[in-house]
Computed example of a mutant assay.
Amino acid sequence: MGITGECRFAGDVDCVKFSLTGNSEIAGSLKAEEIKLTGECGVRGRIDALSLKGRGELAADAGLRAERLAFEGHIGVKGDCEAGELRLTGAVEIGGLLSGEQLDIGLIGYSRAGDVGGGKIRIKRSKGYLLLKMVKPSQEACFEGRTIEGDHVELEHVSAETVRGGNVVIGPGCEIKTVEYRESLEIHKSAKVDNRVKL
């Protein structure tokens, strides 16, 4: 299914390929093997896909699940967001759990999630953020979460209550209450960590 322009769906959308250039609102859920977006897409239900890629703005009220997710822009999910592999440049706002085997987030703007869990987690400012800062000096690129847990965790400009992992790197601009690590821990001199616990 290919859409160019503006489109509204009154119920669920279930198809093999969903391609959108423009603006779409779906009153139900969206299920497709492949989703390609350029523009804005709002889904009242949940999104299920094998592959989801694109740029723009994506919102899902009831949750999002994708095997491979590559996106530039803003993703807002009121429930949980689950991906095998997630690569995002932009901002995320996840009401519940953000989880994946590989999570790679390049921050441009304020982002948050309830909790973050995964295998390899990397949250840093995007290179494009520095260009944006010249245009919009007030724009802050940072990430807030309660608990961040993974095998390999690499963070910059992240605020969290607890960070737990095997190998943990706490980079510049981080404010963490407690870091629990199994194998190795690196903390940047500008980062603020209240408690360090070796498991």
Rank of each mutant, 00 (worst) to 15 (best):
E82M: 11
V169P: 00
S51I: 08
A191M: 01
E34C: 05
E25H: 13
R164P: 03
E67I: 07
G2L: 02
V16G: 09
L20A: 05
R46W: 09
A160P: 04
K17V: 13
H157N: 11
E82D: 10
E25M: 11
E6D: 08
G106K: 13
A83W: 03
Y181P: 01
E144H: 12
R65I: 01
E67P: 00
Q102P: 00
A91I: 06
E85W: 04
F9Y: 14
L69Y: 12
I75L: 09
F143L: 08
S29C: 07
Q139C: 15
A60H: 11
D48S: 12
L132C: 13
G84I: 04
A60S: 15
L185D: 02
G165M: 00
S99D: 04
Y129P: 08
S111C: 10
P137C: 08
Y110P: 01
K133V: 07
R112L: 07
G128E: 09
A10H: 14
G117H: 10
D115T: 11
I3Y: 09
A49E: 05
G106H: 12
R196D: 00
G22Q: 08
D194N: 11
R122F: 02
G90F: 06
T21V: 12
M1K: 10
L30H: 02
T162V: 12
T21W: 00
G114E: 13
T21R: 11
Y110H: 13
L69F: 15
V179K: 02
S29N: 13
A60R: 08
D80Q: 09
L50E: 14
L132K: 15
V43R: 11
T89D: 08
R164K: 14
R68C: 06
G117C: 09
I105W: 01
Q139S: 14
S184M: 06
G76R: 14
E154D: 15
V197A: 00
A59V: 09
V13R: 01
D104T: 08
V193A: 04
K127L: 07
K78G: 00
G171F: 04
S138F: 14
L199M: 11
A60K: 10
S159H: 12
D12L: 01
L20Q: 03
E149V: 01
N23E: 12
